[in-house]
Nucleic acid binder design. Structure first.
Lengths: 227, 227
DNA sequence: GTCTATAGTCGGATAGAC
DNA sequence: GTCTATCCGACTATAGAC
């Protein structure tokens, strides 16, 4: 189911397409959309520069295609953790505050791992750049991946702290939790310098995750159960 | 002390210089270094485009000069809070964990205010962009302003939680605290959408700060005093 | 110090052969 | 689908008058 003659050329086309997306992700992530040159992307992809126009209609089209690719990347990386939570939220006896806290720990430290990983560095920086000047690409990304993550986190926070799940308080609280992980990517350069780390590797990540988990337990424990 | 004849032309020169720095800050902050056009900056500054080369040697020179300007901006905005802390840290009976927590609350919520303010939006985004692809500009900024802030925060955290002030744990913990404020700038677009806010104004900021303060108290209270 | 005019370069897009 | 060659708009930097 792969050796069809009619598929032969389209296979080669797909290979070029994929190579361009991967190379574009690296180059855009490294230096941003405007600084990136289509010629460099083509070289890094090992294909001809004119193919960017052919496959994506142009530089901007490639950029948007890359965000569609990022979308599925995020989903595959986070959905295992996310699905578990969603299922628990759907079950009839809703999670207790204590289980909610446990799930928050899981979710946010998984999020930290994704942000810190070298493989995701490029798209993580790309997303942060996009947020500083949101375009159509951000719209797709938000609707496709971020909204779900934000809502799920908010619901868990609401349960853990006894807040209405639609309240601004619960949402703000959710963002402060996420921020504890995000900072290690958004302020990556400052983190490495101040900690005199050369990179955020396995051991460093473990320390970050331990810290985040402790913080989440403390935050939830202090105010969540009382009312 | 201002009407000297010899100063007359240099006053006009300084005015152009300042206008360019302010305009450049806005334009670079809005769309980034590479997308920004010197023509637009000149128009927004109300001066001639050729003056960028005259005063700063070129586009890149203007960019670096802007970071020097950001440096003093940050210092003036944060030094009131920072000085208070530094003085307390120098005093002989060092702050108790409880006072350290109070100072952390002050410092981080002040930090949140600075990040959220519309007036600082441009340079806050610029800094975040710089961190995604650090250059010489980041070096100056880190040494000139961020290092001090990071060290002070770390020391307070160390006191509040009974950790060695040079330990990686204290530093990581400090960043997680800062991250709670930073997220509202780094993920600004996502925050506005998920909270259905049109901007991060006075009331919204107050809610964010309340949340951050509560979190810091909880985190410190849970583990800081015990050992 | 400031201006106009322009030189020089660069980079995305396209035409057209294979 | 892929390639080479090239066009052409756009942008920074500079020369030189005021």
């Amino acid at each position: 189911m792969q050796g069809e003659t009619s598929k032969q050329s389209s296979d080669r086309g797909n290979a070029s397409r994929d190579a361009l997306i991967r190379a574009g992700l690296r180059v855009f992530g490294r230096i941003g959309f405007d600084a990136a040159r289509t010629r460099d992307i083509a070289v890094e992809a090992g294909v001809n520069q004119a193919l960017i126009a052919y496959h994506f209609g142009g530089k901007r089209g490639l950029y948007l295609a890359i965000f569609d690719h990022i979308l599925v990347e995020i989903r595959t990386r986070l959905s295992p953790s996310l699905e578990l939570v969603l299922e628990a939220l759907r079950r009839d006896p809703p999670p207790t505050p204590q289980t909610a806290v446990g799930m928050l720990e899981e979710l946010i430290s998984r999020f930290a791992a994704v942000l810190a990983a070298d493989e995701s560095a490029e798209w993580a920086t790309l997303i942060i750049k996009e947020q500083q000047a949101p375009s159509e690409a951000f719209d797709r990304l938000f609707e496709g991946a971020m909204r779900g993550l934000a809502e799920t986190t908010t619901q868990l926070v609401a349960i853990a702290r006894g807040l209405p799940p639609e309240s601004a308080e619960a949402r703000v609280a959710a963002f402060t939790l996420v921020g504890q992980a995000l900072v290690f990517r958004a302020a990556h350069a400052a983190v490495l310098r101040h900690l005199q780390w050369s990179r955020l590797g396995k051991d460093e990540l473990a320390m970050v995750q331990r810290q985040i988990r402790a913080n989440i337990r403390a935050i939830a424990g202090a105010e969540g159960i009382s009312p």
